[in-house]
Simulated scan of single mutants.
Amino acid sequence: MPMSELPLAERIARVLAGAALSKNADGSNGSAAKDVDDHWKDHLNQAMAVLHTMREPDHLMAEAGDPQVWTRMVEAAIQDAE
């Protein structure tokens, strides 16, 4: 199973930065990689809000696996980012 080298909060913040900056989403930059590298921390508070929301699995997620494990994993990501 592949595992990321980057913390989950950073990955979410990078996605949010990319969405804000990239021409492929809401931004105007045709090549936003450098800007994402420079500005992902500006989106860390939004990433933390996403993580806090993700702590509770929904019904389908709970059916697919252990909801307590999910909650502990997301809480670990939150603690890592704090």
Rank of each mutant, 00 (worst) to 15 (best):
P2I: 03
S4H: 08
E5L: 00
E5A: 02
P7N: 12
E10T: 13
E10C: 09
R11W: 00
I12E: 03
I12S: 02
R14L: 07
A17R: 03
A17M: 03
A17K: 01
G18Q: 04
G18W: 02
A19Y: 09
A20I: 01
A20S: 14
D26H: 09
D26F: 15
G27F: 04
S28P: 00
N29R: 14
S31Q: 09
A32Y: 04
D35Y: 05
D35G: 06
D37G: 10
D37M: 10
H39S: 11
H39R: 15
W40R: 08
H43V: 01
H43D: 07
N45T: 13
A47D: 11
A47H: 05
M48Y: 06
M48A: 04
A49L: 10
V50T: 04
V50C: 11
L51I: 08
L51P: 06
M54N: 01
M54H: 00
R55K: 15
E56D: 13
P57T: 03
P57E: 07
D58V: 05
L60C: 06
A62C: 08
E63Q: 15
E63A: 12
G65N: 10
G65E: 05
D66T: 01
D66I: 01
D66F: 00
D66P: 02
P67A: 07
Q68P: 00
V69C: 00
V69F: 00
A76C: 01
D80S: 11
E82M: 13
E82P: 04
